[in-house]
Nucleic acid binder design. Structure first.
Lengths: 351, 351
DNA sequence: TTGAATATTGCAAACGTTTGCATTACATTA
DNA sequence: TAATGTAATGCAAACGTTTGCAATATTCAA
């Protein structure tokens, strides 16, 4: 009852006593096929339940109408949002999206790049692993002139199209905000420095301190994967000794939120005793009490820019003149909420 | 410098003065190719930078080593978690995953099913739109005997493999929990009844009330898309008139959390004046104050079961004897938190 | 050394499209 | 009506694999 179902354009051709080329052209709305024939063909296609075989077309055309996307994990707010945008946008252009997660594992990333190449995706969009510092596994795409775009977590010293947030300004702005609210001893909890965007945020943090004549102390910066567990642990370290900091700039919202929980536990009041800023403007920052100040990265805008850039690369693929790389920076915006409300009194410390 | 790069097995064959068939077999570790030849071939493949063309192989084999996944949206906790699991699990089996979002639009779902069929995915995994009641667009998969699995939001009266949560028990348990904590007037906020799982939860809710001799009132059940906005609006309706309910069972956590926010605004205390239960055990339930009681659906287990069932279908595809459909039910577990703590006093109402 | 058995390798077709070029059908003009 | 131009269709090769079957090379026993 099943099996022998798959109809092809050959079946349509036979049924209609036409050549396969005519059928193919008719289905693709080629201009020099008569309207009458097109109509007949399409009718018959519907009648037979014909479904185009994208593999065959892809093989012949050397393009799959498919884009690959590699992100660390789709369960995180920022990549999830961007993936959604990219997918929906791409759908409008008639492209499929293969979403893959590297789980922040370099080896997995390498493997994914290879299978996506094998799948002959027409383009690859990547936000790298925290630990990717060697980018040679992307060479296949560069060498074969297949559109390749990095976003958010982007490579350093690897000529390629890049769309990233303004992480330096983000770090600077977040820190300045804390300073303006009276903080004098600001801890920064950063991701690992193998990932460029954290380097920039740290740099922004440092320069903001210096611009306001505050000392930059190495011991006040912590580098770690920004997970819930790590956040809790670093809190235990930070609050094991006095003086407590009066401000914390965390490089993601999970960390910021976890710090708040810890503070509640040890009776440090936010924002009275300690002010906190997170990063990404994850919706969770709004539902938590007090709501957390965070740095919005305009994920929707970034996603749209990624697709726009991708489409541009795809259409200009032929012209060898088109620039292969460039950097585009998406702005950030600080969203002030209750976790940084009020002003620290010069002295006031401890409940 | 670029372009003419793409090496094929033909290139390898020529280079080595072998036939393409030998090369193909060597690369696939076919047993009747000598170890020596295999070695030579693989070395040369590496040297030439050969990359298999999955499209060609797929065309020839009539299989793409790719699975399609359609979910309403990947930015929601439950589908996101399941997608992650499925993808990672599938990777182990050497399958790619094309994740697609229907955005809860029936038309988009239909379109996606068609393109995924065109892409000749080796299997399709679906959690349907809220509004999908006609499932005929999936017939192509059924008719061609391509593994097809539904999870969570599954069809009614459509013979197919189904893996779902125990929504009846979920509704029953959540409601019973509220009753046991002393609630007498329990509102239920449900999703639209076009989606089967809400029907079951409502049914569980109803039977729990009846089992405890509480009246089931139609006016105490609301049907709507469970978004933040809708939750806020329904609150305005509910709290526009007295008496206020003393318990609310919301069919997702976004709704539950939003209700809590509303309550704070109008000074209804949770859990003293009102107890709230959500659904899905979204991590947000834990970081909100007070933490929200919710119904865990074991997404990881469900994801794993989906992949297991899928692999089973794929390997047994040949045998016409294997059952094409079945239903598998994943258990739920109520996670009690502060939002339902304490016991309502028989009288106590209003601040 | 010969023959048979077995281990390797090669040939060629097939998967379902698309497309350059050649061919045929039709319409127009003189 | 013949010649010409244009519109519509057909032929056949190509995309890169895999695989049944045929062919050759190798091994082993007698």
């Amino acid at each position: 009852m099943s099996k022998r179902t798959e109809k092809t354009i050959v079946d349509i051709a036979e049924e209609l006593k036409l050549s396969v080329s005519t059928v193919s052209r008719a289905l693709n709305d080629n201009p020099n096929i008569s309207a009458r024939t097109k109509d007949k063909v399409k009718k018959m296609a519907r009648k037979l339940g014909y479904r185009p075989n994208a593999l065959a077309a892809g093989l012949r055309n050397n393009k799959s109408k498919t884009i690959g996307l590699i992100v660390p994990r789709i369960s995180m707010f920022f990549p999830a949002t961007i993936s959604t945008i990219i997918q929906n946008k791409l759908q409008e252009y008639g492209y499929n999206l293969i979403i893959c997660q590297s789980n922040d594992s370099y080896d997995q990333e390498v493997a994914l790049v290879n299978t996506l190449y094998s799948a002959r995706v027409d383009g690859l969009v990547v936000s790298t692993t925290l630990y990717t510092t060697d980018f040679s596994h992307f060479d296949v795409f560069k060498d074969n002139n297949i559109p390749l775009i990095f976003f958010d977590r982007v490579p350093k010293d690897y000529n390629v199209k890049v769309i990233k947030g303004d992480d330096y300004v983000g770090g600077y702005t977040a820190t300045t905000h804390l300073i303006e609210r009276g903080c004098k001893d600001i801890v920064h909890i950063s991701g690992p420095l193998t990932c460029n965007l954290y380097v920039e945020r740290v740099s922004g943090y440092k320069h903001a301190l210096q611009a306001h004549k505050l000392p930059f102390k190495k011991t006040r910066v912590f580098y770690q994967e920004l997970t819930r567990d790590n956040a809790w642990q670093v809190c235990e370290k930070i609050f094991a000794q006095t003086p407590y900091p009066d401000g914390i700039f965390a490089s993601n919202d999970t960390t910021a939120i976890t710090i708040m929980e810890y503070c509640r536990k040890i009776n440090v009041r936010v924002p009275e005793d300690l002010k906190i800023v997170g990063y990404s403007n994850d919706p969770r920052t709004e539902i938590v009490t007090p709501p957390v100040t965070s740095v919005d990265q305009y994920p929707a805008m970034m996603g749209e820019r990624v697709v726009a850039a991708l489409m541009e690369l795809i259409t200009n693929q032929a012209s060898a003149t088109a620039p292969r790389y460039s950097q585009e920076i998406i702005p950030i915006q600080l969203i002030a909420r209750e976790s940084t409300a009020g002003t620290v009194k010069t002295s006031g410390k401890k409940k």
